[in-house]
Simulated scan of single mutants.
Amino acid sequence: MNVVQGIAAALTPLGLLWTVLIIGVATFLHELAHYALARRQGVAVHSFSVGMGPVLLRRQWRGTEWRLSLLPIGGYVEIDGMAPEEDGQGSYRQPTRGFAALPVWGKVAILLAGPLTNLLVAIGLMTVSFSSQGVAVPDRARIEEVVPGSRAQTLDLRVGDVITAIDGQDIPETAQVGGRTVAGWEGVRDVLTKAGPHTFTVQRDGQSRDVRFDWSPTVGGQKQLLGIRYAPDVQPVSVGAAFVRAWQVTGEAVPQVIRSFAGLFQRFFTLDLSRDENVSGPIGTAEIVSRAAAVSPWALVQVAILLNLSLAFFNLIPIPGLDGGRIVLALVGALRGRPLTFQQEQAINFAGFAFVMLLMAFVVVRDVSRFF
């Protein structure tokens, strides 16, 4: 199988369609927030594009040219006073109107609007998901499948049983597995790496019972499997509790996102093309969406949550060219009492833009390299 066949096998037409829709909507809302905050402060917006590249359709409305562009992922808004302006002699200079004339808080409000909108979209989707599907409980593992004829079946473990304790110890909220900190329910597999007598305390129909068994990880040189598939137990919650939990999950995601981006930068500077499950390129993202589309609509909602959170956090990285970098430049100008010169800002933005482009190219190359 060649590279093209490998990529085609990993993706599906429906998955590609959902990828375009999810990323397109997230980007559209991001740019719409920039647009709304600029117009709210009386700053003109020259153009608003859904998509990137060559313009397919355009229409003038409320002083803005609304565009539909060829490439279906991404978008942009052209806000007056953000780009350099001509001085009438064929040269460019720092703008003095529109965005450039706003006080620092006005600039920061426009720049923060996009990432905050993606963050609020993610929190809203999580609230809907939690209130409809329930909230996962990290210290309880629910058995979702028992393999016929397996050791688990002979022990009378059943689908719907909830494991609450192992060897007389309650399952903790977090556990260490392979050097990683994971939710406690994921640590159930860890006990099956240790030979000897074990006890699962399970709840069934409101009653608690102990399931005792002797275990050996291998039998005759072959790895032994207990024969269950499990997931975190899920408990129903109110909309209010779901909203609170959504904020908690967002806060808990921040350290993980920081580690993921730090790992990406480290791989970028060392040209490490090894696969990283925490960061996906366009092909990896489409592959994830393809798998989610085959599972359920709620799996697609989970992907949309992750993409909106990723878009929010990535744009807040203080790299020139991104919203976070522009915020830093606006704050630096306010602290200096005057904005950076045209040459300084252009040089910084060019360097930041070049870095982001190289980073994106690296992610794509790494994404494709796993098919070789």
Rank of each mutant, 00 (worst) to 15 (best):
V303T: 03
L309R: 00
V356I: 15
M360T: 13
F314T: 12
I327P: 07
V363I: 15
P320Y: 07
L359A: 06
L358R: 01
L358W: 02
Q343T: 12
V303K: 00
L309N: 00
V332N: 04
A334M: 12
A304Y: 02
A354P: 05
R338M: 07
L311H: 02
M357I: 15
Q343P: 01
L309E: 00
N349V: 15
S310H: 01
L309C: 04
R338E: 14
A361N: 02
I327N: 07
V365R: 08
I348T: 05
L309Q: 00
G325F: 06
V364Y: 01
A330F: 04
L316K: 01
G337Q: 09
G324T: 10
G325P: 06
F353G: 11
A354Y: 07
G321F: 08
A304R: 00
F353C: 10
I348G: 05
F313M: 13
N315L: 12
M357H: 03
V356S: 10
F342P: 00
R338Q: 13
L358P: 05
G333F: 08
N349C: 02
L331H: 02
I327F: 08
F314C: 13
E345R: 13
L359M: 10
L307G: 00
F350P: 01
I305Q: 00
I348K: 03
R366W: 07
